[in-house]
Design a protein around this nucleic acid. Structure first.
Lengths: 125, 125
DNA sequence: TTTTTAATCAACCATATGGTTGAAAACTGA
DNA sequence: TCAGTTTTCAACCATATGGTTGATTAAAAA
């Protein structure tokens, strides 16, 4: 499976998104992460494995604990793909829209496996 | 299933993302959309049904054709969720980052069904 | 009316997914 | 060594998903 698909399918589950939201507030062990859920530890462990497989978390080792840590790079990739569609809803012409519209001129085809090369940015402001 | 999960799982398939990419260049019939794929028409029809279920496309009726049209609202919702994690990778302090950081101050908890209650925030700005 | 075209439906298949349980691993500490 | 804690593994189950084929609907064209 391609990277972006892996990321998006990992995010397409409310439990996993809640786990990421928790990790956004700091690293945590599996048990801590599992606490808020009505689910077995093994269930949460599986979800974490999916997140790890997508590169959305990494895990350390401290004694018998395996603390989880948020890794945001895949989120960035997913955001970039989604933002290439911004022009379809963002009618307002503020600085953000301008910025992204400029970006789109370098990435006109919003498909996966984008090989973005030329980063032409003429001095702005 | 919640709205965001539906959207993300619809996007977590390269075929469906390619269909959206095609629709980003203009409306199209099922047959036209199916042409680039080594897949039966029924297969593409199913994918379109998923996209329609997620609100990512709408469909018209012209004779026996059912032209598909991109609908970007769910993409906006998904983008907004993802952008709430921007601070985890975006270290650069350009105008875009500033803009989004400002937006995050209004939406600090990136979780679904958040029952945020105590929001102690003493007079700011 | 008959035929052609566009699209969907229904049934089916293989595999993936989200969950459980119970056992096992890995480590701490007495 | 034995016992407790944290986490994973393996097996299993039910359901969802992505795909096919063949029949069917709906409209246009002949």
């Amino acid at each position: 499976m391609d990277h972006l698909s892996t990321t998006l399918s990992a995010l397409a589950d409310p439990t996993r998104r809640a786990l990421l939201a928790r990790l956004a507030r700091g690293d945590a062990t599996v048990k801590d992460l599992a606490a808020p859920f009505e689910m077995t530890l093994a269930g949460v462990s599986k979800h974490l494995k999916v997140l790890e497989g997508a590169g959305l978390i990494s895990r350390g080792r401290e004694a018998q604990w395996r603390p989880c840590h948020l890794e945001a790079e895949p989120l960035q990739e997913a955001t970039e793909w989604l933002e290439s569609y911004r022009r379809f809803w963002d009618r307002s012409v503020d600085s953000l829209a301008e910025h992204l519209r400029a970006m789109q001129q370098q990435r006109p085809e919003p498909v996966e496996k984008t090989t973005k090369k030329t980063k032409k940015k003429n001095g702005k402001k």
